[in-house]
Simulated scan of single mutants.
Amino acid sequence: MSNDKFVLQFTHEEALVLFDWISRLNELEDSSTIQDQAEKRILWDIESMLERSLPEVLDPDYESQLAAAREKVRDLEA
């Protein structure tokens, strides 16, 4: 197996929206979209990596910061 890394780049706002979505997926008891434990492991790992990089997740004003990030992401042009 290769030790090559795969790198994705996100804006700060995209990372915050992605973190929130993945953390909600990870909280689901019945995650019928998960077919294998490896998929769940990857979601946990991504959530953990994003959480370490996003100080907003511990901010009391998290919800309004998330709303602002969602708004900005929605308005991004492809």
Rank of each mutant, 00 (worst) to 15 (best):
S2D: 14
N3E: 12
V7Q: 12
L8H: 13
Q9C: 07
H12A: 09
E13W: 00
E14K: 04
A15L: 04
A15S: 03
V17C: 10
V17E: 02
F19V: 02
F19G: 02
I22K: 08
R24W: 04
N26S: 02
E27P: 07
E27G: 14
L28A: 14
E29H: 10
D30A: 08
D30E: 13
S31W: 04
T33V: 10
I34H: 00
Q35Y: 11
D36Q: 13
A38P: 00
E39W: 04
K40C: 11
K40H: 14
I42G: 07
W44K: 13
W44P: 00
I46Q: 14
I46V: 15
I46D: 09
I46G: 08
M49I: 11
L50Y: 03
E51R: 15
R52P: 00
S53L: 12
L54G: 00
P55H: 01
E56T: 03
V57S: 04
V57I: 15
L58D: 15
D59R: 03
E63Y: 07
S64V: 08
Q65D: 04
L66I: 05
A68P: 00
A69W: 01
A69N: 00
A69C: 02
E71M: 04
E71K: 07
R74K: 15
R74N: 14
R74T: 10
D75T: 09
L76H: 07
L76Q: 09
L76R: 06
E77Y: 10
A78W: 06
